[in-house]
Design a binder for these strands. Structure first.
Length: 274
DNA sequence: ATGGTTGCTTGGCAA
């Protein structure tokens, strides 16, 4: 009997910054790497305008889409069947920052959470900047949420644009970004507490030492993003402990930042041998 | 030096 592909799961997370504008890039990514599951953030499309048929046509018929007009929006696209789960209402808002489903593979299920954490504005002070306050509250809720499912047996993967670069090696200059939203001690401490709460394993740092610089985002504002290389690692793949031994490889798809009309984030790909 | 670019909701936000 022919061996099925049940043993391998390849998952990509990508802040696509408009799914309609970058549909050709999504198709190219799917063709190049053939992931089983693609988690998107910042789709920026109402659900009725989400290009679901086109995406099904290039291989992802199972879809869970959350979206609003113009901002936020997340989606889980899959070659494998999905069993939608109820997303949490973070910070008492309904804002399309969370999509969650069981991915059914080889007779078992893996719980996938796709999250888009608020960026938090420019001023790193919750008193002066309500967007930063919202971000800190969101991260506090992620700690509680992780704690609530501590040592749960369900194999779980959390991915998304978490908008925090937790390690000095996750930013181009730890010193110069210490007071910049995404790398402040307030955010980093919360991120660490969230990681310890379930606990989660950082799938990318599982393979790449902390001393090595790693980025998934480069600002549109740089004259030459590649030459200046002032990036940050904002996009993450976290796995529950039982999945850590099954991690096979990770890849940050830096090359997509050079594609025509790129997103400012690049996809992160993780492969597990189940 | 407090700029710069992009994408959406066409004009002012959000990132």
């Amino acid at each position: 009997m022919k061996k099925s592909s049940d043993g391998r799961l390849r998952l990509v997370t990508w802040n696509i910054n408009s799914v309609r504008l970058r549909l050709p890039q999504l198709k190219k990514l799917a063709a190049a790497h053939s992931p089983d599951v693609i988690c998107l953030q910042e789709t920026k499309a109402e659900e009725r305008y989400f290009p679901g048929e086109a995406i099904a046509d290039f291989g992802y018929p199972h879809q869970l889409v959350r979206g609003y007009k113009g901002y936020n929006g997340v989606a889980i696209l899959s070659r494998l069947p999905l069993q939608p789960l109820e997303e949490r209402h973070w910070c008492r808002k309904i804002d399309a920052r969370h999509a969650t489903a069981n991915v059914l593979i080889g007779g078992s299920a893996i719980e996938v959470h796709n999250l888009y954490v608020p960026a938090g504005g420019d001023i790193p002070d919750p008193e002066e900047n309500e967007k930063f306050a919202h971000k800190l509250n969101f991260l506090d809720e992620m700690i509680e949420w992780s704690r609530a499912q501590a040592r749960k047996k369900t194999p779980t993967i959390v991915v998304g644009d978490l908008n925090v670069a937790p390690l000095p090696g996750d930013v181009w200059s730890h010193q110069q970004l210490i007071k910049v939203v995404s790398h402040t001690p307030e955010e980093v401490t919360r991120f660490e507490n969230m990681m310890h709460a379930r606990p989660w394993v950082d799938a990318v740092r599982h393979f790449v030492p902390e001393s090595e610089k790693l980025y998934t985002w480069w600002s549109y504002r740089a004259q030459d993003w590649e030459a200046s290389d002032r990036g940050r690692r904002l996009d993450h793949v976290l796995v529950s402990e039982s999945l850590a031994p099954k991690l096979y490889s990770v890849q940050i798809m830096r090359e997509t930042r050079s594609w025509p009309q790129p997103s400012d984030h690049v996809p992160v790909c993780v492969t597990l041998n189940l």
